[in-house]
């Protein structure tokens, strides 16, 4: 994978280990190498949508149809999808894995982003959505198994699970 950030490589490995049929994402420069990789993937169909709640709804439909699906979104837009996540995927017990790219906090250069993004873990917790963070404290080689485990956890706990991935540190 050349000079790719090892954490991007780990996200790719984690998703490929899940072997989803579909990857739905929002445009994102932080994980652009990941999106580029899956744009030309031979077995995983990847496409972007314009809003996070649309991704959440489509993921639910795919899951109900028995199709394996992974979402890749930014935490800045996660708020757009909270109602969809809680009133459908959570209430209807639809397993959904969200890989959420962290923006706010140390290393963020957009001063407007912090106001929401820094609080995303607490927001998720308050909304009853399970989540955990992969950041500089977790060695890159642990990321892929954690992402794969989160997918299984979404299915065994019958609901949405968010893996927050922080590539800024």
């Amino acid at each position: 994978m050349g000079q790719m950030d090892p954490r991007c490589a780990a996200i790719i490995q984690g998703i490929e280990a899940i072997a989803p049929d579909v990857l739905i994402h929002i445009p994102d420069s932080t994980v652009a190498p990941v999106l580029d990789h899956f744009a030309r993937h031979p077995t995983i169909r990847a496409f972007s949508v314009s809003r996070e709640e649309e991704a959440v709804g489509m993921a639910a439909g795919l899951e109900l149809a028995g199709v394996r699906c992974v979402l890749l979104v930014q935490d800045t837009g996660l708020g757009n999808s909270l109602t969809a996540l809680t009133t459908f995927n959570l209430a209807y017990r639809v397993p959904t894995l969200l890989i959420v790219v962290r923006r706010g906090g140390v290393g963020e250069i957009n001063s407007a982003v912090n106001e929401y993004s820094e609080h995303v873990p607490q927001v998720l917790q308050a909304a009853g959505i399970k989540g955990f963070t992969l950041d500089w404290r977790v060695p890159a080689e642990r990321w892929a198994p954690a992402i794969q485990g989160a997918f299984q956890y979404a299915h065994t706990s019958h609901g949405p699970v968010a893996v927050l991935v922080d590539l800024k540190g």
Binding site: V22, V56, G57, M58, A60, G61, L64, A65, V67, F88
Partner: peptide
């Protein structure tokens, strides 16, 4: 969106 996911 739910129906779109189902249709796909």
């Amino acid at each position: 969106p739910i129906a779109l996911g189902l249709a796909l």
